[in-house]
């Protein structure tokens, strides 16, 4: 992955990374899921731990730990004709705090951005909010791509009803 980068000179800035995180959230809020899928590295994983400070996504239960096949399934399901839990559809809104850029490594083409946000999801008469910390691990692969998005929910150990869209 990172080999591609040595050929081209990359100079990703702090603003580029912050813009990326805002753009991703906006795609989700506007339901532009197909476009959202293009933001991912082919081996990118979306991880939402079940436990606070969870370290292992494989041998412990998580809320989500999904590869590109599963994310594509999620998106196609949201668009499907017989997706009963999405009749009517949910809407969501990400209200972002200023992202912290924790790593800019243009040599290796590796970046890390940590963003605190309030996630709001609604359907019919129900609405709920989640306080979350999103950690984006990004890599330069002819553009910025997500290699892992980790979403930590402040009350990850609480009992939830359906969380149908993507925080």
């Amino acid at each position: 992955m990172t080999e591609t980068l040595t050929a081209t000179k990359v100079a990703v800035t702090r603003d580029d990374l912050i813009d990326f995180v805002y753009a991703e959230a906006r795609m989700l809020d506007e339901g532009r899921f197909d476009e959202w899928l293009t933001l991912w590295a082919t081996d990118g994983m979306y991880w939402m731990p079940l436990e606070w400070n969870q370290q292992d996504p494989i041998l412990e239960t998580s809320l989500l730990y999904e590869d590109q096949f599963m994310l594509r399934l999620r998106v196609e399901r949201l668009n499907g004709a017989r997706t009963f839990s999405q009749k009517p559809k949910s809407r969501c809104l990400h209200v972002l705090n200023r992202p912290d850029v924790d790593l800019i490594d243009n040599e290796a083409g590796r970046y890390k951005v940590v963003t605190r946000m309030i996630y709001v999801e609604t359907r019919l008469d129900e609405q709920f909010e989640l306080a979350i910390t999103a950690t984006h691990d990004l890599a330069w692969q002819d553009g910025l791509k997500i290699t892992q998005k980790r979403v930590d929910i402040l009350n990850c150990d609480a009992a939830f009803g359906n969380i149908q869209l993507l925080p």
């Binding site: 239960t61 730990y65 969380i163």
Partner: peptide, 26 residues
């Protein structure tokens, strides 16, 4: 085996599960 068990749990029975969503809806 445990990896498969954990995967099954999150894929089918989580509040974020696509399968769980349709059951709860019903």
């Amino acid at each position: 085996l445990l990896a498969r068990t954990a995967m099954y749990n999150r894929m089918i029975n989580a509040p974020t599960s696509m399968v769980g969503h349709d059951d709860l809806e019903m």
